[in-house]
Simulated scan of single mutants.
Amino acid sequence: MNQPRTFAHVDTWVFDLDNTLYPHHVNLWQQVDVRITEFVSSWLQVTPAEARKLQKDYYLRFGTTMRGMMTLHGVSADDYLAYVHKIDHSPLQPNPALGEAIANLSGRKLILTNGSVDHVDAVLARLGLATHFDGVFDIIAAQFEPKPAAQTYQKFLADHAVDPTKAAMFEDLARNLTVPHQLGMTTVLVVPDGTKEVVREDWELEGRDAAHVDHVTDDLTGFLAGLSPL
């Protein structure tokens, strides 16, 4: 069995956004989830139950429901993103301890998300983390091809001049760490802390024991704080 990769060599820290930089139990993404169902139901003129089934099928098959709606039904990405990200961000609270832990990491800090820059900006503003990141690679920069597509990571690495063998990736979905690990990144899976109810698909919570997952944490702030002496 291979030893998990470490962090001493890391000079670029890459973070997913939703359910990674804030706790799963906030269930902010649940609001987006509801609006996706509404969008699919309205666009396809199907019942909410039918829309929900299609939404989850597209999410699993295409990486995002949006990609499925674009590919199969000609949806405009701009229209979709504007609708589904129109949510209440107030459940998010400032997290100065996480900000300090991120600030203490040596090197660049980047966000790689299947969401939009507008959504990133709103989330970081609520968390008080807006000044801690050096760049964002969103679904628009990815030309609407979401993680876990290999080309999305390759474009991210090229756009931000990242050496994957000197980078670490933090994600809440194990499948989104497969390609980063293949490219040489140290991978960290961020999981729910187990004390509060979370709204997730079963497959979203899998993969803790996968070979492409180097580390697992249910406390991102504590995990990063433990790395800061490096």
Results as ranks from 00 to 15, higher is better:
V199A: 09
H212Q: 03
K166N: 09
S76L: 07
E50V: 12
R175Q: 11
D78Q: 14
W29Q: 01
Q93C: 12
D219H: 06
G68E: 09
F133N: 08
E204T: 02
A211L: 13
M1N: 11
A130C: 03
T187W: 12
Q30A: 14
P148K: 14
R126N: 12
V191F: 12
E204Q: 12
A103G: 05
G63K: 06
L230G: 15
A97K: 15
E145M: 05
L110E: 11
G184Y: 05
T64N: 01
N114S: 12
A142M: 02
K147I: 06
G184F: 05
H85L: 00
D11V: 14
T37D: 14
N19D: 13
T6H: 15
H9W: 07
A130G: 08
A122R: 15
P91I: 09
V34N: 05
M169V: 14
R200G: 00
S106M: 11
V120H: 10
S106T: 14
R5D: 04
K53T: 15
F137T: 12
G107L: 07
E197P: 04
T152Y: 07
D163W: 01
D121K: 11
L72W: 08
H24G: 03
D193K: 10
Y58F: 10
V46Y: 04
L220N: 06
M1L: 15
G107P: 08
F15Q: 08
G184M: 04
Q93W: 09
V162S: 00
L112S: 07
F39C: 03
T187M: 11
R5I: 02
L227G: 00
H215G: 14
M66I: 01
I111N: 00
D79L: 10
F133V: 10
A167P: 03
Y59G: 01
P148Q: 14
V190Y: 03
V84W: 06
T186M: 12
W29H: 04
L21Q: 04
A210E: 15
H25N: 06
L92F: 11
H24S: 04
A161G: 06
A161W: 12
K196Y: 00
P94D: 09
K53C: 12
V162P: 01
G207R: 00
D214S: 10
R67L: 11
V26P: 02
N95F: 13
T6A: 15
R67N: 13
D138R: 04
V84G: 03
G222N: 06
A8P: 02
N95W: 12
D16K: 01
